[in-house]
Design a binder for these strands. Structure first.
Lengths: 256, 256
DNA sequence: ATTAGAAAGCTAACGGTGTTCACTTTAATG
DNA sequence: CATTAAAGTGAACACCGTTAGCTTTCTAAT
């Protein structure tokens, strides 16, 4: 018998965990300096001091390893975002959303290679086609990286829903919600259907959803362009971001 | 002697051109069904009926072949965009810009694999760092794909400049140009510096540039998200695009 | 303490990749 | 017709991910 009598992890389990950590560390290093396509299973094996075949005791394939890595990155991003949001009080929904945007951007820019890897995993189809079912039902069934991607979105979406409730209670902004162009019945329904469930998790008025999706597109564009070096503004990016965020807030009908 | 007495291409040159076309066709086919990473030099050789080594008489490397392919795609996109813009008269700058956006989107979505390949070539650093020099000076020195990417942007940027002149002449929109948030001296200068040169090719007032960059970010976000399947709206995308474009026009201070 | 069994590792191989070098064939030119 | 440059071949090199079968090592129960 081993130390397992104490209920803790077996010696073997500890060893295994350590090996996995070593493997991932090597993979991360390679990713950082050669990009996603530069991660080589054999190179990892060389690094860890083991035969290539041995790695298959720990991961089903190279792709599986990269997938796990991708999940880790999402978890890191989510953690750091959550922390950053929690720097503001729970009711300061606006500040918390700003923190989300800021965090997303700075993380993606500071870790372009990881971000690159994450983008290389296309959003699973299941993310948007939960027709009929509640989100929670299919949530666990989603592939791990899509689930995490949604989790990340949720951090911001929840704040929006809360902010809407708050604003409504205080009789804030315009009565009908943020200004938005007229849309057809079909588009309105699709927006409500697809977004109110997986972005905010509860029924939210259409104008809010529309503005949210519009803002989300803008943030995505900004972050991807900057991370990949195709954003025209480069030296004063911070300020440019701030003005963009301000503009989006204005689109929400928020004066401040 | 051959038919070269007439000044036309040699028989050998014709043969060579035909072989190159065959090689590219095979590469395109593989790209279309397996993505950028699925293009194999050996598979192409098999396809064309030749030894792998023989391909090196036509391309320096697989990467060089992919680069040429990327350039071809840009040329196709530029051509189809230009045609689409020319469906409107030369003075209908607004319509022409709309055509640009629409063309960009539909091409990217209809040819995601090609678009994917194009995005995989990061914007060359030279694209934005032409400090001091006129654009034309360094233009030829840029790497081929960056040059074409700029050429594509130019199609829209030129229209913006022309539209600005037109609007000014007619005493249209607001006197100071489109509304924009206050920005620091530094950001203003960078926008003028980087953009007025490589996007529109002539001096344009700051608010116009700012609005243009903002719109460009939005369009980029829309197109990339839709092409990669992460846009929340899926069934009514056309309408969603139209509302987005309308919103952007409104940001330019255009009522219509 | 000994033994059954699982976990981990190794060797060797298979089929694939991009690329290079020396050599041969092919075709156009003086 | 002989020369010469282009086009193509074949074999090799160094890598890659993955699999199968065998051996070692360590755990857990007898």
């Amino acid at each position: 018998m081993t130390s397992n009598t104490a209920g803790g992890p077996t010696r073997r389990e500890r060893m295994r965990a350590e090996t996995i950590a070593e493997i991932k560390a090597s993979a991360r290093a390679q990713l950082e300096e050669s990009g996603p396509s530069g991660v080589s299973l054999r190179a990892i094996a060389r690094d860890v001091g083991v035969t290539p075949a041995a790695l298959y005791r720990y991961f089903d394939s190279l792709d599986a390893l990269l997938t796990e890595l991708c999940c880790d990155f999402y978890d890191e991003l989510i953690a750091v975002t959550r922390d950053s949001m929690d720097a503001s009080p729970p009711e300061a929904h606006l500040e918390r959303m700003k923190a989300w945007v800021w965090c997303f951007r700075s993380w993606a820019v500071a870790n372009r290679r990881r971000f690159e890897l994450m983008l290389s995993f296309p959003e699973g189809d299941g993310a948007l086609t939960l027709d009929g079912r509640k989100l929670e039902d299919g949530f666990e069934a989603l592939d791990p990286v899509t689930r995490r991607s949604l989790e990340h979105s949720h951090l911001c979406g929840r704040e929006l829903a809360a902010f809407w409730r708050q604003t409504e209670a205080e009789g804030g902004t315009a009565p009908g919600g943020p200004p938005m162009p007229e849309v057809s019945e079909a588009l309105a329904e699709e927006l409500q259907d697809k977004c109110s469930r997986f972005i905010v998790g509860e029924q939210v008025p259409l104008p809010w959803i529309y503005s949210f999706v519009s803002a989300w597109v803008r943030v995505f564009g900004l972050v991807v362009m900057e991370a990949f070096g195709s954003l025209p503004v480069q030296e004063n990016v911070d300020e440019f971001y701030k003005t963009q965020v301000m503009t989006m807030l204005r689109d929400f009908g928020i004066s401040e």
